[in-house]
Computed example of a mutant assay.
Amino acid sequence: MTDHQRFAALTFDGFRALAATDGLSRYERIGFPDSYRAGHEANIYRDVRRKLTNLDLRDQRVLDIGPGCSDLPHLLLETCRQQGHELLLCDSPEMLAHIPDDPRVRKFPGRFPQDGDLAAHAGRVDVVLVYSVLQYVFVEASVFDFLDACLALLAPGGQLLIGDVPNVSKRKRFFASDAGVRCHRAFTGTDETPEVRFNAPDRGKIDDAAVLALVARARAAGFDAYVVPQAAELPMANRREDILIVRP
């Protein structure tokens, strides 16, 4: 079984099972082969910090939705310790069990937004991070309901980063380019050209229309919203991007 087959079509319950499975690395528990994340997460977190500038302030309320259990939540926790932030974590009980308890951490077990009891924090959260999560919401639930629930949490000046969004339209543009062809050939060790089909539906996958619809919905609700690129050194920057939303 290939790594793609092992981690394809994961659901919330699928991640719960991974979190409770012995013998997996911390990256495999969050649905990635080690080669996709090992040695990269410090760079990923640096890119997150550049976008979520509220993390550089003092005494903020920070929420990570779907933090998983790799290096990223630990890096975020260390920032919160240094800056005096309160850190809220919402994920399955199985995943949260891998993150140590800390006086600055409050854990909200369950699936956001249905579970977790975060309603008391509406309008009071300064930073919301949702990293490499949207693609699973997209196939299991309403991304608009998910977005609306995230927006409702933001305090004035609050920032929401929906990061590491796999955009099939962006992926197609890359693999139709000379750089993409070279990348494909180097990865496969062949001289073949990747097959790319434009103007064809990709069921269950996020595309430009979905990304821009989320931006438009946030703007219509009174928020500033932007599609922003990932740093070039990130492992999937050529086919993933981020959505940054700010409450004025």
Results as ranks from 00 to 15, higher is better:
Asp208Cys: 04
Ala220Cys: 04
Val227Asn: 03
Ala225Tyr: 04
Asp202Lys: 10
Val228Arg: 02
Ile206Lys: 01
Phe198Gln: 04
Ile243Leu: 15
Ala220Ile: 09
Leu212Trp: 14
Gln230Met: 03
Ile206Asp: 12
Val228Gly: 01
Ile243Val: 14
Met236Tyr: 11
Glu241Trp: 08
Val228Thr: 05
Ala216Gln: 11
Ala231Trp: 05
Asn238Ala: 14
Arg203Ser: 11
Ala210Ile: 09
Glu233Lys: 14
Val228Ser: 00
Arg240Leu: 10
Phe198His: 02
Ala216Tyr: 11
Phe198Pro: 04
Ala209Gly: 08
Ala218Ile: 10
Ala210Val: 10
Ala216Leu: 08
Gly189Tyr: 02
Asn199Ile: 00
Arg217Lys: 14
Phe223Tyr: 14
Met236Ala: 15
Tyr226Trp: 13
Asn238Val: 09
Ala225Lys: 08
Ala200Ile: 04
Val227Phe: 01
Ile243Thr: 07
Val211Ser: 00
Pro235Arg: 12
Thr190Arg: 06
Arg197Tyr: 12
Asp191Ala: 10
Ala237Ser: 06
Ala232Ile: 13
Val228Phe: 04
Arg240Lys: 13
Thr190Leu: 08
Ile243Asp: 04
Glu241Thr: 00
Leu244Tyr: 05
Val196Leu: 10
Val196Gly: 04
Pro201Thr: 11
Ala220Lys: 12
Gly204Gln: 06
Ala200Asn: 02
Thr193His: 14
Asn199His: 12
Leu234Ala: 00
Pro229Phe: 00
Leu214Trp: 11
Lys205Cys: 10
Ala200Met: 12
Lys205Ile: 10
Asp208Leu: 13
Arg197Met: 05
Arg203Asn: 09
Glu192Asn: 14
Arg203Ile: 10
Phe223Lys: 01
Leu244Trp: 03
Ala225Gly: 01
Asn199Phe: 15
Ile243Ala: 03
Ala237Asp: 02
Val227Ile: 04
Arg203Ala: 09
Met236Trp: 15
Val215Ile: 11
Pro229Gly: 00
Ala213Arg: 13
Leu214Arg: 14
Glu233Thr: 09
Ala216Cys: 05
Leu244Glu: 07
Ala213Phe: 04
Val228Met: 07
Val228Asp: 03
Val215Leu: 09
Ala225Val: 09
Asn199Val: 01
Glu241Phe: 05
